[in-house]
Simulated scan of single mutants.
Amino acid sequence: MADTLRLEDKADRVVATLDRPETRNAIDQELVDALHALCARLEDEPRILILTGAGGVFASGADIAQLRDRRAEDARRGINTRVFDRIAALPMPVIAAIDGYALGGGAELAYAADIRIGTPGVRIGNPEPGLGIIAAAGASYRLPRLVGEAHATELLLTGRILSGDEAYAWGLLSSLHEPEDLHQAAEKLADRIAALDPLAVRHTKTTLRAPAVAHPAIDLALQAELFESPEKHRRMTAFLERKSERKAERTSERKTEPKTERKQK
């Protein structure tokens, strides 16, 4: 794995940190290749992915020095598009923990995540038309689903950059945290997901990503699979046993409570 993408491997998750301090974590070909390699691992061994950036920056955008020299054939290859689509399609949830700049390709990387959290210092948006190009790595089809058609249209046609507070108000970020608390907040989200049935989580992500025409057929098909799952039976049995135990405890407590004396007439 390239030094530009630092990985922390855990049993149920991977924390991937973009680390190109000299370019504010701009996304170049080396980083794209590293993200593809990471995706290959997570496709074979599904785990939660936390994406973040080093140095108080998520990703300042695509590497302009490389982007300037790319030609029509490079655009058709979809260099960033392909890897962002692959990240979005990972089996388990992807959490983007965003601080500082998330611009252009950096914003589109964040859009590919399932959950985005950030700080008040976030600056996120797509200024590509100011550089003579369009946001072609997912913004046109992901951003409307995230913030609605009207907001997405304004952002993409004006190049407007949102602050962390604005991104939260628009629903682009699901929560805001101080920079020193951001990593812990991402880990807590991962903890909550990891406590659930992995197959149910994967199927939930599949239904969320499915086009409207696929519903409700896809929901029912995946639910049918889960209804036959031993894990569903185990978890529901455990739930009912805990419920029965709590009921027995409450009954026992009532029996042992001292009876109040009747008031004297």
Score class of each variant (00 low, 15 high):
252 S>A: 15
232 K>V: 15
143 L>I: 07
262 R>A: 11
20 R>S: 12
65 A>M: 02
78 G>S: 03
86 R>P: 09
48 I>K: 02
194 A>R: 08
206 T>C: 12
199 L>K: 08
237 T>S: 14
236 M>I: 13
112 A>E: 08
54 A>W: 06
120 P>N: 04
230 P>N: 02
94 V>M: 14
98 I>R: 00
260 T>C: 09
235 R>G: 09
10 K>N: 09
229 S>R: 05
258 P>G: 00
256 T>C: 05
221 A>I: 07
71 R>M: 05
47 R>K: 14
52 T>A: 11
16 A>M: 02
229 S>W: 03
194 A>G: 07
47 R>W: 15
90 L>M: 06
130 G>E: 10
59 A>Y: 00
126 N>D: 13
120 P>W: 04
124 I>T: 05
188 K>S: 15
183 H>C: 04
240 L>I: 14
260 T>N: 06
209 R>C: 12
5 L>A: 00
202 R>T: 04
149 E>I: 09
87 I>G: 01
53 G>M: 01
68 R>Y: 11
3 D>S: 11
97 A>G: 06
164 G>C: 13
179 P>Q: 01
45 E>D: 14
221 A>F: 08
122 V>R: 05
261 E>M: 13
163 S>G: 10
48 I>A: 01
244 S>P: 09
105 G>S: 12
24 R>C: 10
105 G>Q: 07
101 Y>L: 15
239 F>S: 14
23 T>L: 02
205 K>W: 07
224 A>K: 03
21 P>K: 00
265 K>Y: 07
69 D>R: 15
224 A>F: 07
106 G>E: 06
246 R>C: 10
11 A>T: 13
100 G>A: 07
88 A>V: 10
235 R>T: 08
84 F>A: 05
223 Q>L: 13
174 S>T: 10
103 L>T: 08
15 V>K: 07
155 L>Y: 08
52 T>Y: 11
5 L>E: 06
7 L>M: 05
151 H>A: 15
21 P>E: 05
121 G>I: 06
83 V>T: 08
72 A>E: 15
162 L>W: 03
125 G>N: 01
70 R>W: 03
173 L>R: 00
120 P>K: 01
151 H>G: 11
215 H>W: 02
61 G>A: 01
40 A>K: 12
80 N>W: 11
232 K>A: 13
94 V>H: 04
103 L>V: 07
147 V>T: 03
55 G>R: 11
1 M>R: 07
48 I>L: 12
22 E>D: 12
45 E>C: 13
221 A>L: 11
61 G>D: 02
197 D>Q: 01
46 P>R: 06
233 H>D: 05
164 G>E: 04
204 T>A: 14
37 A>K: 12
192 R>E: 12
104 G>C: 15
132 G>Y: 06
98 I>S: 11
79 I>Y: 06
155 L>W: 03
50 I>M: 02
1 M>C: 10
27 I>W: 06
141 Y>E: 15
50 I>G: 00
83 V>N: 00
79 I>D: 01
157 L>F: 14
186 A>S: 05
36 H>D: 13
184 Q>P: 10
59 A>V: 03
4 T>V: 13
118 G>P: 04
26 A>R: 05
4 T>Y: 07
221 A>R: 15
83 V>E: 07
118 G>I: 07
255 K>L: 09
239 F>Q: 14
164 G>D: 08
42 L>T: 03
191 D>N: 14
177 H>V: 08
131 L>Q: 03
15 V>N: 06
49 L>A: 03
138 G>R: 09
97 A>N: 04
46 P>C: 00
